[in-house]
């Protein structure tokens, strides 16, 4: 297994993570180390094993369709880096 710089670039783009060249270089090396270590999992026979996505055997947790209080709009917007009226504001999505 080998993570090339291009792979790191592709993955960084998926994750919307701006990386500089130095980081790309460093990460591809370090991730190779880690992935090499992780390779050990290939030796485990998992052919008859079910995956554990949830460690507890809890099922069917639901809530009733009953309204609860929303945040006051002021609080909802309180942390926003940019707002306009009671909207959040972001750089133009479609250009």
């Amino acid at each position: 297994m080998n993570i090339s710089k291009d792979t790191v670039k592709y993955v960084a783009n998926l994750a919307r993570l701006g990386l500089n060249d130095e980081e790309l270089e460093k990460f591809s090396l370090q991730l190779n180390d880690i992935l090499q270590y992780i390779e050990q999992l290939k030796e485990v026979d998992i052919s008859k094993i079910a995956p554990t996505a949830h460690v507890l055997d809890i099922k069917n947790v639901k809530r009733k369709d009953e309204p609860s209080a929303s945040l006051p709009v002021k609080e909802a917007l309180n942390n926003s880096p940019q707002k306009e009226g009671s909207f959040f504001k972001v750089p133009k999505v479609i250009e």
């Binding site: 909207f87 972001v90 133009k92």
Partner: peptide, 11 residues
């Protein structure tokens, strides 16, 4: 909401 003018969208 994509504003016609300017460079912002509203959410």
């Amino acid at each position: 909401i994509h504003k016609q003018e300017g460079s912002a969208s509203l959410v």
